[in-house]
C-alpha cells in the first residue's frame, strides 16, 4: 500500500529559498565567491558585468529598506537593473492574489524576483508558479537565507576560514521563535560544525525546539564564542501580556558588564537595526567586537554571489 509521506526536503536549484534547501558545499561556494567580490571591491572595482542585460524586481509585502537596498546595490554593482513593485499603490492592495501578481512580473520580462512577505512560505509558493528564479528576502518567521550567507562571509573574514567555526558555541539571544534570521543563521552555522544555543523567555523560545535553551543570559555569556543578539521589537514585546520590557532588559540585554565577561576572542553579531537600550546597551552598540557594520557590508557581497550564481551563468 501507499507508504508514509515525507515532504521535508526538496530542492529547486533555479531559486534561492532557504538555507534548509542548501548543502554545506553550496554555502561554501557562495561564501568563496562573495569573498572574491569583496576583494575586488576593496581594490576599487565598481563595475562587474555578470548581470548585464538582466533586470531584477523586488516584490516586498513587508517594509524593508535595508534588505531591499542591499539587493538593489548588489544587482547594480553586477551591472543589472533593479525595479520595485510597489505594493501599496498596486492591485495587491485591492486584493489581487499573490499568484496573479507574480505572474504579471514574469510577463513583464524580469529576470528574477526578490520576494519578502510577512507569511512563511510565500517565496516557495511563488517559485512554484514562476519559471524565473525567485530569491527569498525573508518569509515571515521562517527564513532569511541571504542574511545567513552574508553572516558566513563576515565570519569567514573574521576567522580566515569557515573551518574555524567547528566546535564553536553560538548563543542566539531574544525572540528566537519569531526570528527568521536566527533560524537561517543557526542552520547555516550548524553545517560548519558550530553548536547553537537559544537564550530567551518562554514567550520567545518555544519548548518545541530541540536546541538547548537558557532562560538567563548570565548562565551562558562567559562560554559562548558568538553572541548573536536579535532585534527586540518593543511593540511586539508590549503585545505579550506576560512579558515586560524592564524585566526583559535585566535578564537578556547584552550590556557592558556582561560583554566584559565574554571570552577574549568572542564576537557579537546583530542583524540590525539595533534597539539600543533593549537588547544591547549603548556601550556594546559601539563595541569593537560588534560585527554589525561588517554584516551589512558583507550582505551586499553575499547577494552579489547569490544573484550571480542564479543569473550570471557562473
Amino acid at each position: 500500500m501507499v507508504s508514509d509521506d515525507n515532504n521535508l526536503q526538496s530542492t529547486t536549484s533555479k531559486d534561492f529559498l532557504a538555507i534548509s534547501k542548501l548543502t554545506k558545499r553550496d554555502l561554501q561556494d557562495l561564501v568563496d565567491k562573495a569573498l572574491v567580490y569583496q576583494a575586488r571591491f576593496k581594490d576599487g572595482e565598481r563595475s562587474f558585468k555578470e548581470l548585464e542585460s538582466h533586470s531584477v524586481v523586488s516584490l516586498f509585502y513587508e517594509n524593508s529598506t535595508r534588505t531591499r537596498m542591499s539587493f538593489e546595490r548588489a544587482t547594480k554593482l553586477l551591472g543589472g537593473e533593479f525595479a520595485y513593485f510597489d505594493i501599496a499603490s498596486s492591485s495587491v492592495a485591492k486584493g489581487e492574489s499573490i499568484r496573479d501578481t507574480a505572474v504579471v512580473l514574469e510577463a513583464l520580462g524580469f529576470s528574477a524576483v526578490v520576494v519578502r512577505h510577512f507569511s512563511e512560505g510565500v517565496p516557495h509558493q511563488v517559485a512554484k508558479w514562476l519559471e524565473i528564479p525567485v530569491l527569498n528576502a525573508g518569509d515571515g518567521c521562517h527564513e532569511h537565507p541571504s542574511q545567513a550567507v552574508g553572516d558566513l562571509v563576515t565570519l569567514a573574514e573574521r576567522y580566515g576560514s569557515l573551518d574555524a567555526l567547528y566546535g564553536m558555541k553560538v548563543a542566539f539571544v531574544g525572540d528566537v521563535g519569531h526570528s527568521r534570521v536566527a533560524r537561517s543563521v543557526s542552520l547555516a552555522l550548524s553545517m560548519f560544525g558550530a553548536t547553537s544555543i537559544f537564550v530567551g523567555p518562554p514567550e520567545m523560545v518555544p519548548a518545541a525546539t530541540k536546541v538547548e535553551t537558557f532562560r538567563e543570559l548570565d548562565e551562558v555569556v562567559d562560554e559562548v564564542d558568538i553572541a548573536y543578539m536579535l532585534r527586540v521589537q518593543k511593540e511586539r514585546l508590549m503585545e505579550r501580556e506576560t512579558l515586560d520590557v524592564v524585566s526583559y532588559t535585566k535578564r537578556f540585554q547584552l550590556n557592558d558588564a556582561r560583554a566584559a565577561r565574554m571570552k577574549k576572542e568572542a564576537v557579537i553579531m546583530h542583524p540590525g537595526p539595533m534597539n539600543v537600550g533593549v537588547e544591547v546597551d549603548s556601550t556594546v552598540s559601539k563595541a569593537i567586537d560588534l560585527l554589525a557594520p561588517a554584516q551589512v557590508r558583507n550582505g551586499v557581497f553575499a547577494r552579489m554571489s547569490i544573484l550571480s550564481k542564479l543569473l550570471g551563468g557562473a
Binding site: 521535508l8 534548509s20 512563511e120 512560505g121 515571515g140 518567521c141 521562517h142 527564513e143 521563535g177 519569531h178 527568521r180 533560524r183 518555544p206 518545541a208 525546539t209 530541540k210
Partner: peptide, 16 residues
C-alpha cells in the same frame, strides 16, 4: 495559528 504546534511548526517558523 496556522498549523499544528510542534516540531514541524517550529522548523517552519509557522505559528501553531
Amino acid at each position: 495559528g496556522v498549523m499544528n504546534e510542534g516540531e514541524i511548526s517550529y522548523l517552519l517558523g509557522v505559528q501553531g
